[in-house]
Simulated scan of single mutants.
Amino acid sequence: MRLSLPTVLRLVALIVLVAFLARPDWFEPVFRPLTQNNAPAIYNQGSLMTLTLLHLRTVLIATVAATIVALGLAILVTRPAGAEFLPLSRSLVNIGQTFPPVAVLALAVPAVGFGEKPTLIALFLYGLLPIFENSLTGLTTLPKSVTEASRGVGMTGWQRLTRIELPLALPVILAGIRLSVVISLATATIGSTVAARTLGEVIIAGLLSNNLAFVLQGGLIVGILAVLIYDALSALERVLARRTGLSQSLTT
């Protein structure tokens, strides 16, 4: 099987990223020209691999929490009994987009202290909107013939939701999760301003010491992770869309 050029480039990026995280010293000649006054070319205040894993863990926890809440709200407001709560639900999920992440961190620190918790709160709030809106779109744009047929065969509301609606809406829901993950990957870097262990440590260390090599390392790791995860989730969406037989376009 012949691989396309974009696929080859993604594989190369993944291999380079893993190699850099495992043995960053191999790449010292690449970053040396970006340093001044014999400053270290490779981040030396912690393990890049550890920071990357912690960064991903923070994003994962926040995304799972946002998915549970946003999907739950979308299911609620698409049921006859919960339709009246749609305006309130939209207002709730828009809270995270109302305040800048730095403001959310500033408000959260006095309540929960420094560390990962305020970062999780900020990422959770920022991740709600895309997941909620895509879940709402997926659940409200299903083919009427399918939903009517499920009622015709005597399925209960729970059976229709779990066997028909959610499986068919899953590609669109996953598109919202993909957007949320990418946003969280970038936003999580600011968590280091409140002592969260993320790749923001590398960027902040570079800014404080005027070391462009550190800034570039942190930025490149986050950027490559975002592209690879985005592409992986996009591929999964296409697979799910083919399986469900939907021809509708995925929300981007």
Rank of each mutant, 00 (worst) to 15 (best):
A149C: 08
L136R: 04
G223C: 07
A22H: 08
S135F: 03
W26H: 09
I203C: 04
I173K: 02
I61S: 10
L56S: 05
A65F: 13
T198P: 12
P6V: 11
S180P: 12
S150N: 05
P143L: 10
I183C: 03
G157D: 13
A232S: 12
A19K: 07
Y126P: 06
L3N: 01
T187R: 00
A186E: 06
L185N: 08
P143G: 12
P87N: 14
D231M: 12
S234E: 04
L240F: 11
T7S: 14
S150P: 03
S91F: 15
L128I: 05
V112W: 00
R23G: 05
V16H: 06
A74F: 05
P87H: 13
V64W: 10
L54S: 10
A41V: 00
T35Y: 07
I164H: 10
L73Q: 06
S150G: 05
L212H: 03
A149P: 08
I221V: 14
R242D: 11
P171N: 12
T98F: 09
S135G: 15
V8E: 01
L170H: 05
L250F: 14
R32S: 02
R178P: 06
L233Q: 04
L71T: 10
L225Y: 01
A235W: 09
G223W: 01
T156C: 08
V102R: 03
V12H: 06
G127I: 07
N94L: 11
G82Y: 09
I221W: 00
G218I: 08
E201C: 03
T162N: 04
I204A: 12
L168H: 11
P33H: 14
L174V: 15
L53N: 02
H55G: 05
T141E: 09
K144T: 14
L11P: 03
S4G: 14
A74T: 04
R242H: 13
T162I: 08
Q217P: 05
A106E: 02
W26V: 13
P40D: 11
S4D: 09
K144C: 00
A83Y: 06
I204E: 14
I121F: 02
L73P: 04
L105R: 01
D25V: 15
S184D: 07
L136G: 00
R79I: 11
F132R: 02
G46Y: 13
